[in-house]
């Protein structure tokens, strides 16, 4: 059908529009790299993180929205990178070391998140509800009370989603549950890190495309979680 006007005459140019930054999905991975993760677990965890970052990079919308930070706890708390575009982050190689300071790691992740949220507000960047993924194969070797209180309060006020994931039979699911009053911790099926991170990347993609009021549907977790 022909238009009742000349499109060229009545076409807005990009220069007449405003450009807003993409709305961001902040995601923090808090990963156990203590010595008990030695061998196949750390190898599969590395594979999973690599796959996750590559999958997000392949999805234009998710890549423009997702901002990843990575904190590990093995011997000491390490911040591998602060929140930023996955496109510009180097895929890390995680190595095992020492004990399991989970409480300090979660606290550090929350501090990074608070700082990022302030930056979003100051720069007029909209953001989706932040996510923290906590993965461990054991029990913390430090006090998690304050960190668990902080995450629980944020979750209760709908300001945070926590994904607590246990690895192997020795993961302390009771402790993980303390970080997440709503979403119960799930235990990884075997060493299906790759399947978990694939699910996580699809969930990030779904959220990055969601619109106000939309309830984001994530895929079933039975591929990677023991149910």
């Amino acid at each position: 059908m022909s238009l009742p006007f000349s499109p060229e005459e009545f076409m807005i140019s990009k220069q007449e529009l405003e450009l807003n930054p993409s709305s961001r999905v902040p995601i923090c991975l808090v990963l156990d790299t203590s010595y008990s993760m030695n061998g196949e677990p750390i190898k599969e965890l590395n594979n999973g993180v690599k796959l996750f970052m590559e999958a997000i990079r392949r999805d234009d919308i998710a890549c423009a929205s997702a901002e990843l930070s990575l904190v590990t706890f093995g011997g000491e708390v390490k911040q591998l990178f602060d929140f930023g575009s996955i496109h510009r982050q180097t895929i890390p190689h995680l190595a095992v070391e020492g004990v399991t300071p989970m409480g300090a790691a979660v606290n550090h992740a929350l501090d990074l998140l608070e700082r990022r949220k302030s930056m979003y507000s100051d720069s007029g960047v909209d953001y989706f509800q932040p996510w923290i993924v906590i993965m461990t194969d054991g029990a913390p070797t430090d006090d998690i009370t304050i960190a668990a209180q902080r995450t629980s309060e944020l979750v209760s006020n709908k300001k945070l989603t926590v994904f607590p994931i246990g690895i192997g039979p020795h993961a302390d699911m009771t402790t993980l549950h303390q970080f997440s009053p709503k979403r119960r911790p799930l235990r990884l099926k075997g060493l299906r890190f790759v399947e978990f991170f694939e699910w996580l990347s699809k969930s990030v993609s779904a959220v990055s495309q969601s619109t106000p009021g939309e309830k984001v549907k994530t895929e079933a977790v039975d591929d990677w979680a023991e149910l």
Binding site: I12, E18, P212
Partner: peptide, 26 residues
Amino acid sequence: SDGTAESLFNKKEERLAPAITRMFEW
């Protein structure tokens, strides 16, 4: 709507896009 506002409203500067003036003129 919010979809249109992505192009016609600068959230940080709280500024409306010049395209709107052009639409009024049209």
